[in-house]
Nucleic acid binder design. Structure first.
Lengths: 133, 133
DNA sequence: GCGTGATTACTCGGATACAAGATGTCCGAGTTTGAGCGG
DNA sequence: CCGCTCAAACTCGGACATCTTGTATCCGAGTAATCACGC
């Protein structure tokens, strides 16, 4: 039960791209170098973000990744869901006939965390250098 | 990023033991049979709960596991921490010199979930058959 | 009836096996930019 | 100076290799209750 490193890389990459005011594509190599990761691996991660519609990819020379049109207000939860998936963190694998009270509690707690992550936009960290709340 | 099955088993085992009014030890075999798990595996999980001080083990014939003296008010978080560990779910593996804003947000969200799990006692599910909130 | 030993029913702990997912690498294919070269 | 071609700089995607972790099994050791047996 831990967040994957991929999520960490994705968050940092997005944060960096948002910080870049220009809409020029940012190359994977540059992002990878900043974080000390293999470009090939980071590419896989960013591809997931592309498929989720959070960023766009520009191929060819001087290509790279760029933010979508109005995607400056991406939340933490958007990125996490794109990488980790949207499945529930907990599922009671017992019989499905009677609803599991434990399951309900766990889902409720999970939603508490997700609400916090949904409210927090990445751009807030860039603009104000302050964490909400 | 999912809760392990072991956590599921631990929660259900604890819930069952709390439901048992008597303080007679409950055997692993019985608990395992109820959940469709191997007794050997469940034993390993319950051992973790013993080490965490949440339950006691009684060896010998008619042995098994029993709740500690005043451990009727165990919270979800107690059990989860005993199984999954207390480490943070997210750690930014970049340079430690400058504190990471992303890390702070993630920890904050994690705490929101943990607060929910800390408040919720297992015994509530038995007594009132109602999930708080 | 009573004490002693053996059997049985348990947990405990380590060693091991297996599977799945996270992590990371490599390479071929497609795409765009830009430079070079010939007209 | 213009247009064509070719190389370079990229991403994309799949196919691997590796490593960690969760999941699960097995077996020997220890412990306590119970049973059997003999006195």
């Amino acid at each position: 039960m831990r967040f994957s490193k991929a999520t960490n890389y994705a968050l940092h990459s997005m944060l960096f791209m948002i910080g870049e005011a220009s809409n020029k594509p940012v190359g994977v190599q540059y992002l990878a170098e900043k974080q000390g990761v293999s470009p090939a691996y980071l590419s896989k991660i960013l591809t997931k973000l592309v498929k989720a519609g959070l960023i766009d990819s520009v191929s060819g020379a001087n290509g790279g990744y760029t933010l979508g049109a109005q995607n400056k207000d991406v939340s933490f939860l958007d990125i996490i869901h794109a990488i980790e998936g949207t499945a529930s963190l907990f599922n009671c694998c017992l019989d499905g006939k009677t609803e599991c009270l434990i399951q309900k509690v766990m889902v409720s707690a999970e939603q508490a965390m997700e609400e916090r992550l949904m409210v927090q936009k990445l751009v807030d960290l860039v603009d104000q250098k302050a964490v909400g709340k």
